[in-house]
Computed example of a mutant assay.
Amino acid sequence: MELLNDMALFVEVVKAKGFRHAAQVLDMPNSTLSRRIATLEKAIGLRLLHRTTRRIELTEAGQLYFERCKRIVDEARLAHEQLGDMLANPSGVLRASLPVDFAVTYLAPLIAEFAGLYPGITFDFDLTPRQVDLVSEPFDVAIRIGEPADSQLIARPLASLRPRLYASTGYLEQAGEPRKPVDLERHECLGILRAGAWTLNNGRRSVTVPVGGRFTLNSVGMIRRLATLDMGIVLLPEEIVADELAGGKLRHIMPEWDGIATPVYAITETRLLPAKTQHFIGFLRERLGR
Rank of each mutant, 00 (worst) to 15 (best):
T39V: 15
L40V: 09
L40K: 00
L40D: 01
E41P: 01
E41L: 02
E41V: 04
E41S: 09
K42E: 07
K42V: 08
K42Y: 10
A43G: 09
I44M: 13
I44D: 06
I44G: 12
G45Q: 02
G45R: 03
G45C: 03
L46Q: 08
L46N: 13
L46A: 15
L46W: 05
R47P: 11
R47V: 15
L48R: 03
L48Q: 00
L48F: 04
L49Y: 01
L49C: 00
L49V: 04
L49P: 00
H50N: 06
H50S: 05
R51N: 06
R51A: 03
R51E: 12
T52A: 06
T52Y: 07
T52C: 11
R54P: 07
I56E: 03
I56N: 00
I56R: 01
I56D: 00
E57F: 06
E57H: 11
E57P: 08
E57Q: 13
L58Y: 03
L58S: 05
L58V: 09
T59R: 04
T59C: 01
T59Q: 08
T59I: 09
T59V: 13
E60F: 12
E60M: 08
A61T: 06
A61D: 14
A61F: 15
A61Q: 08
G62N: 03
G62E: 01
L64A: 14
L64S: 09
L64G: 12
Y65V: 12
Y65M: 11
F66R: 00
F66K: 00
F66N: 00
E67W: 03
E67Q: 12
E67I: 05
E67P: 06
E67K: 08
R68T: 11
R68D: 09
R68N: 10
R68E: 09
C69Q: 00
C69A: 15
C69R: 01
K70N: 14
K70C: 05
R71M: 08
R71E: 07
V73I: 07
D74K: 15
D74M: 13
E75Q: 14
E75D: 09
E75C: 14
E75A: 15
E75I: 02
A76D: 13
R77K: 06
R77P: 06
L78E: 06
L78Y: 11
L78P: 03
A79Y: 09
A79D: 05
A79P: 04
A79V: 11
H80R: 09
H80K: 12
H80Q: 13
H80I: 04
Q82P: 04
Q82N: 13
L83E: 07
L83Y: 13
L83R: 12
L83P: 07
G84S: 11
G84N: 11
D85T: 14
D85M: 15
D85Q: 07
M86G: 03
M86A: 15
M86P: 00
L87K: 15
L87N: 14
L87R: 09
A88T: 11
A88L: 15
N89E: 05
N89Y: 15
S91Y: 06
S91I: 10
S91N: 13
G92F: 02
G92C: 05
V93Y: 08
L94I: 03
L94T: 01
